[in-house]
């Protein structure tokens, strides 16, 4: 498992750079991860990330966009604005979680 340095912190990641240890994540680290992919975190981003982390802890898998919109009540449109391009994967990366596996 590769180890990489994000900011000043050493973390375990998979071959693509997604964190593999749930407990190595922090909101400070999230800011660095977001900066790595050109996103500056706001409270709106953090609200999504906190939901992702909580939901992952309860369900054991990363929620899809649909789940974030129906369970957390954050509209899909907003997710595309906050995490442009590939929102589900970008959200998972910044939240320190694996990529979502669900189809919808």
């Amino acid at each position: 498992m590769p180890v990489t340095t994000i900011g000043a912190t050493q973390v375990h990641v998979d071959s693509e750079g997604f964190l593999t240890d749930y407990d190595e994540w922090s909101e400070d680290l999230a800011r660095q991860l977001a900066a790595n992919i050109g996103i500056e975190l706001t409270d709106a981003h953090l609200r999504v990330l906190r939901f992702l982390r909580e939901d992952y802890k309860e369900q054991g898998e990363t929620p899809t966009l649909r789940r974030v919109s129906t369970v957390a009540g954050i509209p899909v449109r907003e997710l595309f604005t906050l995490f442009p391009g590939k929102p589900a994967k970008k959200m998972a990366y910044i939240a320190g979680l694996p990529k979502p596996v669900g189809c919808v």
Partner: peptide, 11 residues
């Protein structure tokens, strides 16, 4: 030092 591994989101 390992270079930072950053996913390529293929933007």
């Amino acid at each position: 030092e390992e270079p930072a591994i950053i996913p390529d989101f293929g933007d």
